[in-house]
């Protein structure tokens, strides 16, 4: 049985770390979670990013956020990756693509051009 004791342990473990404040991450992954995004499959995409970032211990450097309408329903699920003043917009994202984006773009530093909106619009 999960207990509040376990939560206390999490608290103790976390108190020794410097906790990331919003905006201090190097990279930010934002998932569109308006009605159309949710209907198109944004929830498992979001949860895949959250799990992959935690698994790779990137919580301090990569932030995962949610946003409402991005204004391009037909491309949902949409994910935007921000780094400095650069923005890459991924479209029709699914959990497998999300894992690949973490591996190649977030960790490897190379955006996956074929999944971006630029490629989809051609």
């Amino acid at each position: 049985m999960k207990s509040l004791e376990e939560l206390k342990k999490i608290r103790e473990k976390m108190q020794n770390k410097v906790i990331l404040r919003e905006g201090s991450a190097e990279k930010r992954i934002v998932v569109g979670m308006a009605t159309c995004g949710i209907a198109a499959g944004a929830r498992p995409v979001l949860n895949t990013f959250v799990e992959e970032i935690a698994k790779r211990n990137l919580t301090g450097t990569v932030e995962v956020g949610q946003t409402g309408c991005i204004g391009m329903c037909r491309f949902e699920p949409i994910v935007e990756v921000f780094e400095g003043d650069k923005r890459v917009t991924y479209v029709y994202v699914n959990p497998d693509k999300a894992k690949e984006i973490v591996e190649k773009h977030i960790v490897g530093g190379e955006p996956i051009v074929e999944y971006t909106i630029g490629a989809a619009e051609k």
């Binding site: 999490i10 608290r11 976390m14 108190q15 906790i19 959250v50 935690a54 919580t59």
Partner: peptide, 8 residues
């Protein structure tokens, strides 16, 4: 200090 959005 510990946000509810922490992975753990």
């Amino acid at each position: 200090e510990v946000p509810l959005s922490s992975p753990d």
